[in-house]
Simulated scan of single mutants.
Amino acid sequence: MSQPTQRTIKANGISLNVAEQGTGPLVLLCHGFPEGWYSWRHQLEALAAAGFHAVAPDMRGYGKSDKPEAIDQYTIFHMVGDLIGVLDALEAKDAVIVGHDWGAGIAWHAARLRPDRFRAAAILSVPYRPRSPVPPTSVMPQTTDAQFYQLYFQEPGVAEAEFEKDPRKTLAAMLFGGSGEGVTAIRAMAAASGKPSSGVGMVSRSAGMLPKVEVPLPSWLSAADLDYYAAEFARSGFRGPLNYYRNIDRNWELMAAFEGVKVVVPTLFIAGDHDMVIAFPGAAEHLANMKQSVPQLREIKMLPGCGHWTQQERPKEVNAALVEFLRSLPN
């Protein structure tokens, strides 16, 4: 079985590491937090075998790609610009864009702002959300004891200090905790204790985000997979990835001019019914109303028992859905 190859390309004024496999129409795979190109390892092979050129960059701030220091270098316009730069570097007229987690948000806007370059979109985990009337962080939940994890990420250096102490433990906790198995275990513990949880995505103000106990590996993640992720983050750190969150309100300001612009390309949406994002307040409404903003939405595919790490937890189902969708598109 062939393996993806990696190379460095120049895009949007920075260097990006890309993993790629196969030949044919271009499919651009955009990862989320805290991952890297490696989160698409199962898709690269499957898409190549199906006759596509699959390309997964380490997004800006991750892995072997450049990591600008300034927080304001991680806006949605930088991210979409990076992806246009990847297409240009590959001399590709257009591509189908696939995104998960933060990569999903970026892919939504890439398809929305540049349908001339992104002819279709397959989005995992994060439904399309119209622009809110107020800055997003202003309505994120918080109490005297806890705050929403995206608020915890706002102060530079705080989350970095917790996460970089032991990257392997950090990634194990996040990958298990957000998985279908982790969500099931957390719900069972809460039910057994009789104590209500503090809410989806809430972080204790005194104890931080990570659990104090060892967590098991989820069934879909090998020790070698975790070692790969840990080595990447041990080298690159968490500042770049966390800077995405520090631009949430800035992105809201920047996107004001595009309010009401729809995603007009053919689109597929896939998520797990145990995904914490699907449990966020308002997510059910976004799912139900998505076709208003995404008129060519072909399907909403929900995977029973699947958590947040969609393409890693259910590679066969995701691969089959992606290939079917890609083959349905006009050439």
Rank of each mutant, 00 (worst) to 15 (best):
D225H: 04
V215Q: 05
G237N: 10
K212T: 10
S236E: 10
G237W: 09
L221N: 00
A234S: 13
V215F: 02
P216C: 01
A223L: 01
L226P: 02
L242V: 12
L221Y: 01
D225T: 06
Y228Q: 15
A231S: 14
W220K: 02
R235V: 12
P216Y: 00
S222H: 05
L221E: 03
A224G: 12
F233Y: 14
L242T: 08
P218N: 00
D227I: 08
L221C: 03
R239D: 13
K212V: 07
F233W: 12
R239S: 14
L221H: 00
P241M: 14
A230C: 11
P241H: 15
L221K: 00
F233R: 11
Y228S: 15
P216W: 00
Y229N: 04
G237I: 10
D227G: 10
E232F: 07
A231N: 14
R235C: 11
S222Y: 05
D225Q: 06
L217E: 01
S219H: 11
A234N: 10
G240R: 05
F238Q: 05
S222P: 02
F233K: 13
A223K: 07
Y228H: 15
R239Q: 14
G240K: 05
E232L: 13
G237R: 11
V215E: 02
P216K: 00
W220G: 03
E214A: 14
L242S: 07
E214L: 08
A224V: 13
G240L: 06
V215H: 01
G237M: 13
S236C: 11
D225P: 03
P241K: 11
V215N: 01
R239A: 14
S219R: 11
W220H: 05
V213K: 12
E214S: 13
D225K: 04
F233H: 12
L221D: 03
G240P: 06
F233V: 11
L226C: 04
A230K: 09
F238R: 00
L226G: 04
D227Y: 11
G240V: 06
K212M: 06
P241Y: 11
L221A: 02
A223H: 03
E232D: 13
K212H: 07
Y229R: 03
G237F: 09
A230Q: 12
G240M: 06
K212P: 04
L221Q: 02
V213N: 13
P218R: 03
P218C: 04
Y229E: 05
E214H: 08
K212L: 05
R239H: 14
S219K: 13
Y228A: 15
F233M: 13
Y228N: 15
A223G: 06
G237E: 10
V215G: 01
P218K: 02
D227H: 08
D225F: 05
L242D: 06
S222W: 04
V213C: 09
Y229D: 04
L226T: 04
S236M: 08
R239F: 13
A234M: 09
R235G: 10
D225A: 06
V213Q: 15
L217T: 00
V215W: 02
E232S: 12
E232C: 11
K212G: 12
W220P: 02
K212Q: 09
K212D: 10
R239K: 15
A223N: 06
L217D: 01
